[in-house]
Design a protein around this nucleic acid. Structure first.
Length: 924
RNA sequence: GGGCGUAUAGCUCAGUGGUAGAGCACUGUGUUGACAUCGCAGGGGCCGGGAGUUCAACUCUCUCUACGCCCACCA
């Protein structure tokens, strides 16, 4: 096989990727090897590869390929995330283009449409990861809404609930009026906007004057419930306990004391709106208001609604919050109560997805007791059970973990894991709601039936139904009968427990029923389980077992996922009945072998979102850390240092870079630029530089090919006599050691540069140049034939000459043979060292040079088995110095390169001859 | 308000208690035999400012300045 004159990355990339995947190269069978595990941060299923993915995945692939080459059982778990809000937004946007909206559909129909979109676009990013050369275990590709994964999510919710670590609470949440859902603290971005600071005068009830309050959100005064002053503020001491008559609503509210009021700020008195401000909520509670009694004046879309006391004037009802703001200010002004208006920069909360201003809103939501779960996660880092790289992130981690707030996990969406909670009316007071949390609907029904049965008395008639919503239950009347026991069981596939002895009769007088919580869980609640739920947790619940499958059809066992019906109400069917054939690795083995994962690589931007939550959930459910090391990398920024964003239009498409320079070049760029903890500024010329590096390697391979240099055939270093060979072998040994050190420290830049400079500077520029004359000069053959020797003396002379020439020729041939052997071995080592960084070209060259070809990825990291030859290193170092000196002297002296130079040099003759030949090769 | 990070060659970045490095760019030069996506030679930096420790500081300490990021309830 002859290498093409020019290196064309595109020609080899697709070919080799397909080959790897179809031969199972990414997961060779190594049952006895040391396991090594990385889970890939699951990208959004409908997303596409951006430059940050390229960085993140390149780093992971380098590590996983490196460990695989070293003989480990390297598993790289891959899959995608359902990305609740993001995906639902995409689908809703598509609907909007067709003048449709989510509520035009039933929930099931809408969710089915999202599944359709997932099926349609879900392969985009996985295809792009393949183009990057990522060697994930595709045969086990997973999705966060696969049945087995969903089951794990639900189990975690139920277990945490039963342990009291998940609870339902009525408090202020960050409400996104654009998406109409609650979001967590982390999903809120604070931005500065130019606003105003309005100073209002609130008239005292007794007509004795006013008290001034200042606000940046005047509209909330419609739901004010108090005015607070600092207890130490003597200016207002005489007013405490008096009432204020609110303008517009006429509501009578008290003046209270609270530390929250800052005497330095504004007038020192502050209006309190407990239902619409986080601070005021706390003040309100201290002032004795119960959350349930706090006034709410906004609906889900942040339009004004009537408060419970009915005091908001009718013409405010239904208008937008910003219109309400204008109208309130106008009204206050018209009443002569507007003291002054100041311009002010306001820290304003925005939804990170919707870019809408977040509204604190009083609702019932599910919360995770993050504070409790955080403790072991803090301890794990403190004790070193988790090593954070770079270490400087530890402080940030501790800071956040130690001040962690309850985590709101319920989302008012349709796409996601529906919360496994069912509600029903309390027996004592049907207006109150009680909760049944269960992994499956039949369990919830069973529990509910038992509960309601407790109120059943001999002779009672009672009906029990499953409703779609609370509203449906409330509007059910006694005349609207529940089903009979038999109908109920037939309809739901559930069994009413015998001991419940529920009588379901058409003429029931007591109507009971339950309905499921309509909300879904925060996406990060589920992805937090990624390190163990992908490995078969809980154990009766195996993930896709790709073992062997990919050898047959190349597709793996992913068909089990993605059934639209799996998402909602139907109980999940355990999969273990479905799997058949010999299970080479049981779920238990997988989980035991690969948990804890060895390493997690993620961007620091998801340290709180994902990494911290994995640590919490992993420690809680697995009683062990999710990973032993956590490597955090920075962001890839635009060339000018700004953050890349679609809206700015300054994004760089990694696929475009791959098209232009090849995947290997892009990967090498990412590695070479990744210095711990620092952002990477995009520098395309550098990508081009690494494309050139690949070309250089390609041409070196061609040189080897032309000169009969092929595979070494051995992993061990060949024995060598020539100094130049002993030297380069020593250089390989040192390079390998340096590379191992860099990889152990996760210094990707150092690792890449070590290999780069060995290949280019040492191997190409010196070694190949030094051996070139020996390889290319024509052997002086002892074939001179003397026809008429004039004398015996002359005859002897000739014979001796022939003998001498023969010896020289033999020596020369031996030298060439040794060079071929050593050069072939060195080149093999180069391909090995480079393979994690540049998998495509190394695979191609390995194959093309006829060496171990397909065994590449099965090869074990070589042990050179030799010491560095210091003598040879000194000799070659001397020769290199001499050549350098001569070259620079020649340039300085203005001697043209064409002039021959005679050198008087003492030292190793063989070397100096080689050195002179190199000089001459460049001189004539 | 708290925390973190960064300031080194024109650009993008490594780096070590002891005469400063890489890639790109730049200058000169060289193409019939691996490679012009290249070779060879070369120019270019008071290593942000100041103070301190030390025989010696780009490297350690303090401080100042500039920029960036994260967290935080200032109405």
């Amino acid at each position: 096989m002859t290498l093409d004159k020019t290196f064309d990355p595109a020609a080899i990339e697709a070919k080799w990727y397909q080959h790897w995947e179809s031969t199972g190269a990414f997961r060779p069978e190594r049952p006895d090897a040391v396991p090594f595990t990385i889970v890939n941060p699951p990208p959004n299923v409908t997303g596409s590869l951006h430059i940050g993915h390229a960085l993140d995945n390149t780093l992971q692939d380098i590590v996983i390929r490196y460990e695989r080459l070293r003989g480990k059982d390297a598993l790289w778990v891959v899959g995608t995330d359902h990305a609740g809000i993001a995906t639902q937004m995409v689908v809703e946007r598509q609907m909007a283009e067709r003048q449709q909206k989510r509520t035009d559909f039933t929930r099931d129909d809408f969710v089915a449409k999202v599944w359709e979109w997932k099926e349609e676009s879900g392969g985009t990013i996985t295809g792009q990861l393949r183009r990057l050369g990522c060697s994930m275990d595709w045969s086990r590709e997973q999705f966060t809404m696969d049945p087995h994964f969903s089951k794990a999510v639900i189990k975690v919710f139920v277990d945490l609930y039963n342990e009291g670590l998940i609870y339902r609470d009525k408090r202020l949440v960050n409400w996104d009026p654009g998406l109409k859902t609650a979001i967590s603290d982390l999903e809120v971005e604070t931005r500065e906007i130019n606003g105003k600071f309005w100073h209002f005068r609130y008239p005292l009830e007794d007509g004795s004057g006013y008290i001034s309050v200042a606000t940046t959100r005047p509209e909330t005064m419609l739901a004010d419930m108090a005015v607070a002053v600092n207890p130490a503020d003597e200016r207002y001491a005489h007013l405490v306990g008096k009432n204020v008559r609110l303008p517009i609503t006429g509501r009578l509210i008290p003046i209270v004391t609270d530390e929250h009021a800052d005497p330095e700020l504004g007038s020192g008195a502050v209006k309190i709106t407990p239902g619409h401000d986080f601070n005021d909520f706390e003040v309100g509670k201290r002032a004795g208001f119960k959350p349930a009694d706090m006034l709410n004046m906004l609906d889900a879309e942040a339009r004004v609604v009537q408060t419970a006391d009915g005091l908001i004037p009718q013409d405010y009802i239904g208008i937008d919050r910003f219109d309400a703001r204008k109208r309130v200010v106008e009204a206050i002004d018209a009443a002569g109560l507007l003291e002054k208006v100041e311009d002010r920069v306001i820290q304003t909360p925005f939804g990170d997805r919707s870019a809408q201003i977040i509204e604190p809103w009083l609702t019932d939501q599910w919360y995770v007791d993050a504070k409790t779960l955080a403790q072991p996660a803090i301890e794990a880092v403190r004790s070193g059970a988790i090593e954070v790289v770079p270490k400087s992130w530890e402080k940030t981690y501790f800071n956040w973990m130690e001040n962690i707030q309850p985590w709101c996990v319920s989302r008012q969406l349709w796409w996601g894991h529906r919360i496994p909670a069912w509600y029903g009316p309390s027996i004592e007071n049907p207006e109150e709601i009680i909760v049944f949390v269960a992994e499956r609907e039949d369990e919830a029904v069973s529990n509910a039936v038992s509960y309601y049965h407790a109120s059943w008395q001999e002779g009672d008639a009672m009906s029990f139904s499953i409703y779609q919503s609370e509203a449906e239950y409330r509007t059910d009347s006694a005349k609207d009968h529940g089903p009979s026991n038999e109908e109920f069981e037939a309809e739901t596939g559930l069994t009413i427990p015998d001991d419940a002895q529920v009588h379901l009769q058409p003429d029931s007088t007591k109507i009971w029923g339950i309905w499921r919580d309509p909300d879904v869980l925060d996406t990060w609640f589920s992805s937090a389980l990624w390190p163990f739920a992908t490995l078969g947790w809980p154990l009766d619940n195996p993930p896709p077992s790709g073992e062997g499958d990919h050898l047959k059809d190349g597709g793996g066992a992913r068909a089990a996922s993605a059934q639209p019906g799996d998402v909602s109400l139907k109980p999940t069917v355990p999969l273990h009945h479905a799997s058949h054939g010999p299970p080479p690795r049981s779920g238990e083995d997988l989980l035991t072998r690969h948990y804890p994962n060895d390493l997690l690589i993620s961007g620091f931007d998801i340290l709180f979102f994902w990494d911290a939550r994995m640590a919490m959930q992993g420690l809680h459910f697995m009683k062990d850390v999710p990973w032993r090391r956590l490597y955090l990398h920075g962001l890839v920024r635009a060339a000018d240092g700004s953050k890349m964003s679609k809206s700015k239009g300054n994004t760089v498409d990694p696929l475009g870079l791959i098209d232009q320079y090849g995947a290997d070049a892009l990967r090498f760029f990412m590695a070479a630029m990744e210095s711990q903890g620092r952002d990477i500024k995009m520098d395309e010329s550098r990508v081009a530089g690494y494309r050139n590096f690949a070309t250089k390697l390609w041409n070196a391979a061609r040189f080897c090919e032309f000169n009969g240099i092929g595979a070494s055939g051995s992993v061990a270093a060949p024995t060598a006599e020539l100094a130049v060979n002993r030297w380069i072998i020593g250089e390989v040994v040192e390079t390998l050691a340096a590379l191992d050190k860099a990889m152990a420290d996760l210094r990707f830049d150092a690792a890449a540069n070590i290999v780069y400079h060995f290949v280019w500077d040492r191997f190409c520029d010196w070694y190949l140049e030094l051996v070139k004359p020996t390889l290319s000069s024509i052997t002086i053959a002892p074939l001179t034939i003397f026809i008429n020797p004039v004398s015996d003396e002359r005859r002897t002379e000739v014979l001796e000459s022939v003998e001498h020439q023969t010896e020289k020729a033999v020596a020369h041939e031996n030298a060439r043979a040794e060079i071929r052997l050593v050069a072939g071995w060195v080149f093999d080592q180069i391909l090995l060292m480079l393979h994690p960084f540049m998998p495509f070209i190394t695979e191609e060259l390995w194959h093309a040079t006829g060496t171990r070809a397909n065994d590449l990825i099965l090869a074990q990291w070589p042990e050179p088995g030799v010491e560095v030859d210091e003598v040879a290193a000194d000799e070659i170092g001397y020769a290199i110095n001499v050549i350098d000196l001569v070259r620079s002297t020649r340039t300085e002296a203005g001697i043209p390169p064409s002039a021959k130079i005679e050198l008087q040099i003492s030292g190793n003759e063989e070397l100096l001859v080689a050195a002179m030949q190199v000089l001459q090769a460049h001189s004539t």
